[in-house]
Amino acid sequence: MKELLSDVNQRIAGRVGQLRSAQGLSLDVLARKSGVSRSMISLVERGESSPTAVVLEKLAAGLSVTLASLFDPPATSPSGPIARRADQPEWQDPASAYVRRNVSPPGVPQPMQIVEVHFPPGQRVAFETGGRDVRVHQQVWMLEGAMDITLGTERYRLRGGDCLAMQLGGPTLFHNPTRKPARYAVVIASEPALKR
C-alpha cells in the first residue's frame, strides 16, 4: 500500500499543479482562496506531503473542482470509457485512515463521478466546505455498516441501503459511531454556480 500511496500522492501533486497553472493562480492566490498555507501547497505539488482529506477538500474548493477530480491522472493521459478495477486509484487519509477509491473512468466528459469509501470504526472527518464557482451535489449510499453525517446542524444516521442527497457548501462531518467498518458509495455531480 505504501508504494501505491506514493503513486497516488504523485498523481495528486501533478493534478493540483496542473489545475493551478491552468487557472493562472499563483501559490499565494490559491493559498488565500483555499485557506491552505503556501508552503503546504508547495509540498503537495512536489509530492513531498501526504495531505489529509481536509486539506485536499480545501484545495479542491479553492480550485473549484471536486475532491474526486484531484485523483484523476494528468489531462494529457489517454483514457477510455472503462475504469478497470486495477486502474482505479485508492488513497488513504493519513488522519482517519479512511480509504477512498475513485471508481469512475477519468477524463470522460460527464458531470458525475463515483467514489467508494471504506470508513474505519470510531473515526470522523470534518470538512469545512466553503463556496466554489461550481455547485457540487452528492448522494451517499450506504452499502455496509452505519455512518452519521452532519450537514451544518442537521445529523443523519445512515444504515445499509440508505441514501442521503446533499449539496456541498457548508461544514460536513462524517462519523462512524460503531465498532464495525462502514462502506459506502458517493455519487458526485457538479454544475456551474449561478453568478450573483
Rank of each mutant, 00 (worst) to 15 (best):
V187R: 05
M112Y: 15
A60G: 07
C163D: 08
R135L: 12
G35H: 05
G35F: 05
S34D: 05
P181L: 06
L43T: 02
L158C: 04
K58W: 04
G170F: 04
S50Y: 01
R179Q: 12
L168H: 06
I114E: 11
P171Y: 00
V44Y: 01
G80R: 09
R101N: 07
V8L: 09
A13S: 12
A60W: 01
V140A: 07
R46H: 12
Q23D: 11
S190V: 03
Y98Q: 13
I149W: 06
G17L: 03
A95W: 01
G17I: 00
L67S: 01
S49V: 03
G14T: 03
I12K: 01
R132W: 05
E191H: 05
I41K: 01
G107H: 07
R20F: 00
V136P: 00
T76G: 09
L158V: 04
R46M: 08
F127E: 08
V16N: 02
G169T: 07
R32Q: 14
K33C: 01
Q113E: 15
G17S: 09
A126K: 14
F119M: 04
R135D: 15
L30N: 01
V29Y: 01
T76P: 02
D7W: 03
E128M: 10
R46E: 06
S26A: 09
Y184H: 10
V16G: 02
G169C: 07
Q123N: 10
V103A: 11
E191R: 07
P109G: 08
Q139F: 06
R15L: 03
G122K: 10
S96Y: 05
G160P: 00
V108A: 12
L19R: 05
V125Y: 04
T76F: 10
P120G: 10
S50I: 00
Y156S: 11
V55D: 01
R101A: 07
R183Q: 14
V103H: 09
P192R: 09
G35T: 06
